[in-house]
Amino acid sequence: MRFHTRKWVKPEDLNANETLFGGRVLAWVDEEAALYSIVQLENKKVVTKYMSEINFMSTARQGDIVEIGIEVVKFGKSSLTLNCEVRNKMTLETIVTVDNIIMVNLGDDGKPKSHGKTKIEFVKDRIAAAKDK
């Protein structure tokens, strides 16, 4: 799994127990899944369709650095299925896992649109391929 984003746990990210609020970490996961999908599918019109079981395993406290990892499970016709792990950067202790996040590629009409992708692509490879043309 590749960890793409780091977040610094600030006072506004805490719950009444002074630990990382679950809703905040899920918002981070949803945003990371969207950003990852937008880059992979080369379309900024991508929406979250589904999140499977969410497993909270530990927590973080103010001042901790957490990192969010995403990996592709499969490419569908108009969707991308991901899984995610959020962990403490310093201890590498897992904070939360989400087994399946389904992101759907949309057309200009707001309806699911085939994306034609079948494998992970890296931006650097796209740039190199464009230069070769």
Rank of each mutant, 00 (worst) to 15 (best):
E121R: 11
H115N: 07
V29F: 00
R61L: 15
D13C: 10
F75R: 04
W8V: 03
V66A: 07
N15C: 06
Y50D: 05
N100S: 04
A129K: 01
K117F: 02
N15R: 07
K124A: 10
S114Y: 02
E85A: 00
D30A: 11
D132Q: 08
R2Q: 00
K119E: 03
I38A: 13
N83P: 07
K44A: 07
F56Y: 02
S58H: 10
A128R: 03
T59E: 05
V29G: 02
A16H: 05
L26N: 04
L35P: 04
A16Y: 10
P112V: 13
N88C: 04
N88F: 01
K113M: 10
V66H: 00
G69F: 06
Y36F: 15
I65S: 00
F3P: 08
I120G: 10
F21C: 08
E93Q: 03
G23K: 07
D30I: 03
I38T: 12
K131R: 08
N55R: 12
F3Y: 15
N15F: 01
K119H: 00
I68M: 01
R24W: 05
V46L: 13
L80G: 13
I38W: 13
S52F: 15
D108G: 15
K7L: 06
K113Y: 02
E18C: 05
V39A: 10
E93F: 05
I70Y: 03
E42T: 04
T81W: 09
D30L: 12
R61H: 15
V39R: 05
E12T: 06
I38L: 13
R126W: 02
N83R: 08
T59R: 01
K77R: 14
K10T: 01
E121Q: 14
K131D: 00
P11F: 06
R24C: 07
L35R: 05
A33R: 08
W8Y: 07
Y36V: 12
S114G: 11
M103T: 14
T91E: 08
R6T: 00
G110T: 12
W8S: 01
G22E: 11
E85I: 08
V104C: 11
S58W: 04
P11R: 01
M1A: 09
R126F: 01
E67A: 02
E32R: 07
I38N: 09
G116A: 05
E53R: 03
V104Y: 12
V66D: 07
Q40I: 07
P112H: 14
V25K: 09
H4K: 05
N17S: 02
F122D: 00
V72A: 12
T19P: 13
K74D: 13
S52E: 14
V25W: 14
N83A: 00
R2C: 00
V47H: 03
D108S: 15
V104R: 12
W28A: 04
D99Y: 14
G22Y: 00
N105D: 11
L92P: 04
T48M: 15
T97F: 09
K133R: 06
K45V: 12
G63S: 09
